[in-house]
Computed example of a mutant assay.
Amino acid sequence: MLKGLGGIGDMAKMMKAAQEMQGKMAELQEEMARTVVVGESGGGLVKARATCKGEVTGLDIDPSILVASEKEVVEDLIIAAIKDAQVKGHARNVAEMQKMTQALGLPADFKLPI
């Protein structure tokens, strides 16, 4: 008489899985906000630290390049180091998301919101 109600259990199971995934996503986002990567430029003369979410947290500049006549070069090296850190952070974030999708049994190319 009540055929088809077996699907309700499947729906509840899906909802529970979605809630678990949401919790894991939140944990991963928090972890990525705490994880720091280092970008470099100029053969390591300039180093920038940034979180995997892209927030720059620090900058190290070798004093040997702080010459007034080389101001533009130093500025370019700083920008390059920051970009390198942000690229590394994004790549780490994507890799962690891919691990999560695989652990959840989703297709490898499934895109979770980052």
Rank of each mutant, 00 (worst) to 15 (best):
A80D: 04
I65S: 08
P107K: 10
L77T: 00
G7N: 13
G9F: 12
V37Y: 02
P63A: 14
V87R: 14
L112F: 11
V56A: 14
L77C: 05
K99S: 15
M97N: 04
M11W: 09
A80K: 05
Q102G: 02
D10Y: 08
E96S: 13
V37N: 03
L2K: 07
A91E: 15
A68F: 12
G43R: 01
M97K: 08
M97A: 11
K13Q: 15
G39V: 01
A33Y: 03
E96P: 04
A48T: 07
L112Y: 04
Q19F: 00
I8Q: 02
Q102I: 15
I79Q: 10
V73T: 12
Q86S: 06
E55A: 11
T57D: 07
F110W: 08
K111W: 02
S69G: 01
K111V: 14
G42D: 09
A18S: 09
A26R: 11
S69R: 11
L104S: 10
A80M: 03
L66Q: 11
M97G: 11
N93E: 06
L28W: 04
V87K: 12
R49V: 00
A33E: 14
G23H: 01
R92L: 13
A50R: 00
K88Y: 08
A12Q: 09
M1C: 09
G4A: 05
A17E: 15
G105L: 09
G89V: 05
D60L: 07
T51C: 06
L45C: 06
